[in-house]
Each structure stands twice: as structure tokens, then as C-alpha cells.
Amino acid sequence: MLHEPAPEIHGVDEAASFKRRLGLQMLAGYGLLYVIFIAINVIRPKTMGVIVVGGLNLAIIYGFALIVIAFILAIVYNWMCTKHERSFENEGTVRHG
């Protein structure tokens, strides 16, 4: 609302199935890490206090890791999707809006 409608996207995105599969795989991987994090907190909360490295405990290391890994996965996902889209663009079969 209150902005011009976004341009409609025409054509078939040949990379769609690849991107969807990759996205689901990465989501499953990250989701597993997230579930393990919650499970440790709920089942073995004391484990979160174990010092892992440099005086930092598992809670801090795991928390930072979840943030950093999200960023790394995002970069990798974008890179792989772009690469795949370009391979179709080179074949002239994909048109982005």
C-alpha cells in the first residue's frame, strides 16, 4: 500500500527447483543446530556453563556460532543460487523481472 505495485515477474525460473532444494537443505541443517541448542538448554542446562575456549562458555560460543553460521550460510546460498541462475541465463532460459 502507498507504493506503486512491485513489477510482476514474468517467465519461468528454471533455477527455482534448485534454489528451493538448496534452501530446504540449508534450513534443515541450520534448524538442526538450533534444535540442538534448545535441547541442551532444556535437558542439560548446566552444560551451557562449561568453559570451551579462552574463558568463554558453551552458551556464548554456541550463541555467537548460530549468528555467524547464519551469515555464512546466507553468503553460500546466495553465491550458489546466483551461479545457478547465471548458468541458465547464459543458456537464455531464465528471465528475471
Binding site: L27, Y30, Y34, G63, A74
Partner: peptide, 16 residues
């Protein structure tokens, strides 16, 4: 924990 959860939600936004 809120920070972690808020950020993790963006993974769903990006991948799905």
C-alpha cells in the same frame, strides 16, 4: 537468547 532467536528467524526468511 532473544538476539539469537530473532536472527535465526532470518534464515527461514531467506531460505524459504
Amino acid at each position: 537468547l532473544y538476539s539469537i532467536g530473532y536472527l535465526a528467524g532470518w534464515v527461514v526468511a531467506l531460505f524459504v
